[in-house]
Design a protein around this nucleic acid. Structure first.
Lengths: 140, 140
DNA sequence: GTAACTGCAAAATATTTGCATCCTT
DNA sequence: AAGGATGCAAATATTTTGCAGTTAC
């Protein structure tokens, strides 16, 4: 189970109200891209917008979250940390953006093949996004 | 060879100075993410910022270009159309973002494996981005 | 105690929109 | 001719920054 306090201490970040609150929302929405606006609303405006932006930037620099490619001109973030594999298999998850219902989700069933980088390249992280129409919208 | 006039007529878009100019820059920078600012500068300010934004949005809606995931808080775009395969193989190209020199390029050598979508899902396009350090920066 | 974090206000950027005019088909 | 595209100016939206006060370690 992901725990905000553990994540913060693991990443050597001070435990503050804003960080814990933001982290909790990310944990509850694993693999789903969240925008600053979403976080602001879902913390009941308890924190200043600037603070949330600073939190997001800090988290991103430390590698707690990463930006997600999204088609609707909104920048979103999601947790880098993954619980699904206890053995820390580190399979890259694939995000799927539905152009009909406009949601971005994670295709847990599918795992991306590890891509072989050319010589001299070092990987820090990878993001895969497929844009299309999801099963629900195709059925409707 | 990619030709701006052909692309515009193929996609049923009117041929205007701004569109041709922007398209030319995209063609000369295939697989490289370009921001609105870049396009504005490289057209010598000949076009209004709003016009360039409208051009980018139109191109995106029609599927001429697509947004690229980038780490440095800047939205970039690149051509969807690909010349490398005359037989229109349509292999997805993989973008590589170097965190040291801050450039996004296309790993032509590597082609992404076609990902199998779960039942009911339809794909429109796919974007793969790997973040890390490129060969030049690793050598330096 | 000290460095780091926050809130507030303001600045800097980025993106969109309304409207009159011009251009492509 | 008619609808679409552009330029300009203004409105919005997004993100960053300076600084004084507060908090975590």
């Amino acid at each position: 189970m992901l725990n905000p306090n553990k994540i913060l201490s693991d990443y050597q970040l001070r435990k503050t109200n804003c960080r814990v609150a933001v982290l909790n929302i990310f944990i509850q929405n694993q693999h789903i891209g969240l925008s600053e606006t979403y976080l602001e609303h879902h913390t009941d405006g308890a924190f200043d917008r600037a603070t949330i932006y600073r939190t997001l930037n800090t988290f991103q620099e430390k590698g707690v979250i990463h930006r997600i490619l999204d088609e609707d001109n909104v920048v979103k973030y999601a947790l880098c940390i993954d619980t699904c594999s206890p053995d820390h298999h580190h399979h890259e998850h694939i995000h799927f953006k539905c152009t009909t219902c406009n949601t971005t989700t994670c295709l847990d069933e599918v795992s991306a093949v590890e891509i072989q980088l050319p010589g001299g390249y070092t990987k820090k992280e990878a993001n895969y996004l497929i844009v299309g129409v999801c099963n629900k919208c195709n059925a409707a």
